[in-house]
Computed example of a mutant assay.
Amino acid sequence: MNEQPQGDGSAETDRLREQVEHTREDLGRTVEALAAKADVKEQVVEKTAELKEQAAEKAAQLTGKLREKAGQAADLVKEKTPDQVLEKADQAATQIRDTAVHAGQLAAEKTPEQLRQKAASAVAAARANRTPLLVGGAVLVVTLLLLRGRKQK
């Protein structure tokens, strides 16, 4: 009937198969793209990550600018402060440190051994239970502030 030469039909068949395969690949990419657009949850996750990254970059920029401004302000204060004042401030700081060390030594010498041991165990307990102590202290401060506010009214 309609017989075509074997060589010509085979080449045409191969070309059609390649087109079909190429079309399938294109269709697969299109379906993946549509599925990605339809996945709202994934879009939210991606957008959130993008916004977090942008916020972190902005925060880093602002922190850098603030540090730079603070450094400039400190330099300006140092420049404007007379040398005599800086020397006196340094002397006062040294004297305060020395006095604090001396007071600590005197307190250690005068404190009975039993009291020092109890203080050391109290410090160890406080360090071991730091979070509950901080929370309790915060609650105490808030309570005192609320009571103070009510008394003033």
Score class of each variant (00 low, 15 high):
residue 71 G to E: 10
residue 71 G to D: 12
residue 71 G to L: 10
residue 72 Q to P: 01
residue 72 Q to G: 05
residue 73 A to S: 08
residue 73 A to M: 08
residue 73 A to L: 14
residue 74 A to D: 11
residue 74 A to F: 07
residue 74 A to R: 13
residue 74 A to H: 06
residue 74 A to M: 07
residue 75 D to V: 11
residue 75 D to C: 08
residue 75 D to W: 14
residue 75 D to H: 13
residue 76 L to H: 05
residue 76 L to R: 15
residue 76 L to A: 15
residue 76 L to C: 04
residue 77 V to L: 12
residue 77 V to N: 09
residue 77 V to T: 13
residue 77 V to D: 08
residue 78 K to H: 15
residue 78 K to W: 01
residue 78 K to L: 02
residue 78 K to N: 10
residue 79 E to G: 06
residue 79 E to C: 01
residue 79 E to R: 09
residue 79 E to N: 03
residue 80 K to C: 09
residue 80 K to E: 11
residue 80 K to S: 07
residue 80 K to M: 10
residue 81 T to W: 03
residue 82 P to T: 10
residue 83 D to V: 10
residue 83 D to N: 04
residue 83 D to F: 04
residue 85 V to E: 09
residue 85 V to I: 05
residue 86 L to F: 04
residue 87 E to T: 15
residue 87 E to G: 01
residue 88 K to R: 14
residue 88 K to F: 05
residue 88 K to V: 11
residue 88 K to I: 09
residue 90 D to T: 15
residue 91 Q to C: 02
residue 92 A to C: 03
residue 92 A to R: 13
residue 92 A to N: 15
residue 93 A to W: 11
residue 93 A to C: 04
residue 93 A to E: 15
residue 93 A to G: 06
residue 93 A to L: 02
residue 94 T to M: 02
residue 94 T to D: 11
residue 95 Q to H: 03
residue 96 I to V: 11
residue 96 I to M: 14
residue 96 I to T: 12
residue 97 R to M: 03
residue 97 R to D: 08
residue 98 D to W: 02
residue 98 D to R: 04
residue 98 D to I: 09
residue 99 T to N: 11
residue 99 T to C: 04
residue 99 T to S: 11
residue 100 A to E: 06
residue 101 V to E: 12
residue 101 V to Q: 13
residue 101 V to N: 12
residue 102 H to E: 07
residue 102 H to V: 06
residue 103 A to N: 13
residue 103 A to V: 13
residue 103 A to H: 02
residue 103 A to W: 14
residue 104 G to D: 08
residue 104 G to S: 09
residue 105 Q to T: 11
residue 105 Q to F: 06
residue 105 Q to E: 15
residue 106 L to I: 12
residue 106 L to D: 08
residue 106 L to H: 05
residue 107 A to C: 02
residue 107 A to M: 06
residue 107 A to Y: 07
residue 108 A to P: 00
residue 108 A to V: 07
residue 108 A to T: 08
residue 108 A to F: 04
residue 108 A to I: 07
residue 109 E to A: 11
residue 109 E to H: 06
residue 109 E to W: 02
residue 109 E to D: 10
residue 109 E to G: 00
